[in-house]
Amino acid sequence: MTGGTTTDRKKRTAFEAEALPHMDALMRTAVRMAKNENDAEDIVQETYVKAYRFWDKFETGSNCRAWLFRIMTNIFINEYRSKSRSPVTVDVDDLDDSFLYGQLSSSGREDNPEKELLAKIIDGDVRKAIDELPDDFRMVVVLSFLEGFSYEEIAEIADLQLGTVKSRLHRGRRLLQKKLYDYAVSNGYIKDRPK
């Protein structure tokens, strides 16, 4: 009937060997992007279906992990990114680069001021801080911080200019620090030091 069975099976085997090992990473990034596990599971499934359909477009030997993340990021942007896109007028510009450093070192008693703060911040705070970043920032921050992709890979994955990646990461970092600092103050981990 169909002569293609053996080739189909070969294709499936090759695909599973190359693509399935990245499921952990895709899932943990999807959870951070979508902010909930149900959507994340759907996104990962869609990613694999799409990747499988386009498997013949994948160049053997090239970076399969980045290719899968590109497909996934695309699905996230097109189908899951919050419909009411948060205005990108995020007020980070009034924060200077070493905001956290300024706040921490003004306490003056520690030689290693970040140690005290980081020891008290809990997992939930980090997740919350990431989740509260606007979608566009969260995407690049997660791809960089969590998955360790290079700027160039992120540009490719998220279809952005290199400069945009850099500036979003930069601003994303400052926002994150501000949020973590605010949690730390509001939870009483540390005392606020007005500038």
Binding site: E114, I121, D123, F145
Partner: peptide, 24 residues
Amino acid sequence: QKYRLESSIQEFIHAKLADDKPAA
């Protein structure tokens, strides 16, 4: 000092997130 602060925050966040095992 600034470098150490920034890089330890970076490592810290990576470690916290990488630990995250989805419940499902």
